[in-house]
Amino acid sequence: METECQNRLPSQPSYAQSIPKLSSRVLISMIQDAEHPKAIELLSMVNALPVSKVLTNIQWEAGVIDPVVSDALHSTSVGSHLAICGDERFIWACWSVASQAGWLNDEMTLLKTEDVRNLYCVHCGHIQAISTQTEAECQSCQVQLFVRDHFSQRLGAYMGVCLDANQPYGGEVK
């Protein structure tokens, strides 16, 4: 475990394997797909807490979170816990709203369901969805990108840098 941690970049996100035992009285859950086994596990434990609020069908793709969700994140008191369950794109979209509302990392449990993540092209600033691959072509500037483990929480994306220094521009070499 320790060796694994030593090889990780400090910015590389880590996700919970399961929901920890909580001392909080309030749990808010943001769930992307209620049918996923991790979501089902999360939903099975929410009833054990005195207060629980489950948020599903969240509109997040456009970068604007539903005001109902935002209100729920703002109106709770310190000592609450937040579980975000979904793919990495969903997780970091929700994380961003929660952070702005004042939530801290140690008050959130991030449960990753699928391997869909965001890639940020450091050359043109485009963000696109990728899977687990370590190389990708930027959809905007066509530069071949190497997908680094370096992750920006603010952008919710992994950094993509030019793969081949001899091929710094996208498209055919003329």
Partner: peptide, 9 residues
């Protein structure tokens, strides 16, 4: 006092 502080306090 501490049971009722808004998140972000």
């Amino acid at each position: 006092l501490l049971s009722n502080q808004p998140v972000g306090t």
